[in-house]
């Protein structure tokens, strides 16, 4: 276990060094984070010019959701996107073999060995927006609420990881498809707004099938005393199930990759 933490440190140091080779990235990423955040806020403001609530949520409450959306966008772009990009390339070129002959868990290596540090700017920007919105509402969450928030954040992290692991697994089979991530982002776009905005089937879909609701809406609810404890339980269950499923899928894929390639 300790070995893996140490490895994580070394992987990330390696990635940071690699990124320092391209210093211009820092400025553009920082600029884009801020620009994107303001763009999101302006977009939200437009809706509130015509109504006091959106899906029953006030302007500041929606900003908390937007903050979480921005945070997780940053997390995905910083931790997951570079790894999936690299893995697709490695499977295509055949250098994924080098990963498989290393004495380290291949799933761990493939999932975490790259990091795009600059995108963490989004995480900072998103967290800033959450804190700002909470202050604007004069809300101070209780310790219990913080705890529920932390749990749901963990659930969201696991769900996000599972989704990306699932997409990475697909790259064993569909070598040519490098834009799965774009497809997921198309769904993730819905996470800018509380789930109550969407109706009927779409809402069920975004809660249980591609659980965007658990990534942005429910953690936000936890902070503002809007959470139904059932949602927390369902979230934990879902995270558990999906983690088991995607891990199995990965192992199955590695096995079939190893017996199919030449």
């Amino acid at each position: 276990m300790f070995k893996y933490f140490k490895l994580l440190g070394i992987f990330w140091k390696f990635s940071v060094l690699r990124e320092l080779e391209y210093r211009a990235n820092f400025l553009t990423n920082a600029f884009m984070s801020v620009f994107w955040l303001f763009w999101g806020i302006i977009g939200t403001t437009i809706f509130f010019a015509h109504s006091d609530t959106l899906g029953g949520w006030t302007y500041e409450q929606v900003l908390v959701v937007l903050g979480l959306y921005t945070m997780f966008l940053g997390i995905m772009e910083a931790f997951f996107r570079p790894n999936i990009t690299e893995m697709i390339e490695q499977v295509r070129v055949g250098t994924f073999d080098f990963v498989l002959v290393k004495p380290v868990n291949a799933q761990f290596y493939a999932s975490f060995h790259s990091l795009t540090m600059w995108r963490l700017a989004d995480v900072v920007a998103g967290a800033g927006l959450i804190l700002y919105a909470l202050r604007a509402m004069g809300l101070t969450p209780t310790p219990m609420q913080w705890l529920a928030f932390a749990l749901l954040l963990a659930v969201a992290l696991i769900l996000v990881y599972c989704i990306w692991l699932g997409m990475m697994t697909m790259s064993f089979w569909f070598v040519k498809i490098d834009n799965f991530a774009e497809l997921f982002y198309a769904f993730y776009e819905t996470g800018r707004f509380p789930i109550s905005v969407y109706s009927g089937l779409l809402r069920a879909f975004l809660t249980f099938v591609i659980p965007i609701a658990f990534i942005t809406t429910f953690p936000a609810s936890a902070l503002m005393a809007l959470l139904d404890p059932m949602e927390l339980l369902i979230g934990l269950g879902l995270a558990f199930l999906l983690l088991g499923f995607t891990n199995r899928l990965w192992r199955f894929a590695v096995r079939s990759y190893a017996s199919a390639s030449s």
Binding site: K3, K6, L7, I10, F11, F14, L17, R18, E21, Y22, V93, G94, T95, D97, F98, K102, P103, V104, Y109
Partner: peptide, 22 residues
């Protein structure tokens, strides 16, 4: 096929391998 990272000096990849192979 190569396992060295293109953008960095080889020594950096060596250090990663040092950790992986303990």
């Amino acid at each position: 096929k190569q396992q060295l990272n293109w953008d960095l000096p080889a020594i950096e990849t060596f250090l990663v391998n040092q950790a992986i192979y303990e």
